[in-house]
């Protein structure tokens, strides 16, 4: 490990050698490359969200909406905001909530047509071509991580100056353009899938399979969202999920979420 040679900041009083820190994004990128060398069934994708670093900027939510071209009513990763304490001892907590990709998911066995399942990498997928849109899985999810595509767009119904300001025709074309979820082009037209389907976060598998980190991870300004292969002992996420300050949402339900929160 190289030792820093630059002058030390005045507030550092120790004489111990400084070790340069690699940006965690770059380290996760390396982790990802390593994981992709392994057979798919040996990867165990997990997400770690450091609540101490999340500032509630919602960049991850918006990045996700943009990446997956999510229409109104569909959200994969809202950030929950909670106020804790009473004045003057008040603070806010921000809890991003992607799909938990549970190892024991309540949403998959209820599907009447096998349209949703855990894939070989442990990510819960929705097969849009198979989903009948009954929404039973939405009611079964204890995290409200599934939403329904009603077929609308954000600019739909806007008229006059509002439509002009929004650039409605071009914006609508953009909203209807294909996303690439599950590594396939899904254009939004008529009542074709994914319209009329249940939709959910899939850890941006289409990006991950191409060696890119999920959209929410790369856009997190506080580096609060970490992603990687928990089966790799050298990965960032493997480090963190073994720490004592880690928790998962609604663990008492036995769903075994793959999203961990650092407190």
């Amino acid at each position: 490990m190289p030792v820093l040679t630059e002058p030390r900041p005045a507030f550092i009083v120790s004489n111990a050698p400084l070790i340069p820190q690699q940006d965690v994004l770059l380290r996760m990128q390396d982790d990802l490359k390593r994981a992709l060398q392994k057979p798919v069934n040996q990867r165990r994708w997990v997400m770690v969200i450091d609540l101490r670093k999340c500032v509630g900027c919602h960049a991850c939510t918006i990045a996700c909406v943009a990446e997956n071209k999510l229409p109104p009513g569909v959200v994969y990763r809202p950030v929950l905001e909670e106020e804790i304490g009473t004045y003057p001892n008040v603070t806010r907590r921000f809890v991003p909530r992607p799909c938990m990709q549970c190892d024991n998911p309540p949403c998959t066995p209820v599907c009447p047509v096998h349209a949703t399942y855990k894939n070989a990498q442990g990510v819960v997928e929705v097969n849009y071509d198979q989903c009948i849109g009954c929404r039973y899985c939405i009611t079964a999810c204890p995290y409200a991580a599934r939403t329904f595509d009603f077929g609308g767009t954000y600019v739909q119904g806007t008229t006059g100056s509002e439509a002009f300001l929004l650039g409605a025709p071009k914006a609508e074309a953009m909203e209807r353009a294909a996303n690439y979820e599950y590594s396939k082009a899904w254009e939004r037209k008529g009542d074709e899938s994914p319209i009329g389907n249940v939709r959910k976060c899939h850890f941006c598998l289409h990006r991950v399979n191409e060696g890119m980190l999920p959209s929410c991870v790369t856009t997190c300004i506080g580096r609060a969202t970490l992603f990687g292969d928990a089966n790799d002992p050298d990965s960032v996420v493997a480090d963190w999920i073994a720490s004592p300050n880690v928790m998962r949402l609604k663990e008492e339900l036995g769903t075994e979420p793959r999203v961990y929160y650092l407190l």
Binding site: P112, Q130, R135
Partner: peptide, 26 residues
């Protein structure tokens, strides 16, 4: 009429998940 994809109802019969209470009900 409540289904998101009306015309796929046949899938419950031909590709159904009999472990699902909804499929059993259909």
């Amino acid at each position: 009429l409540d289904l998101g994809q009306l015309w796929r109802i046949w899938k419950v019969y031909l590709q159904g998940n009999l472990g699902s209470v909804m499929a059993q009900m259909v």
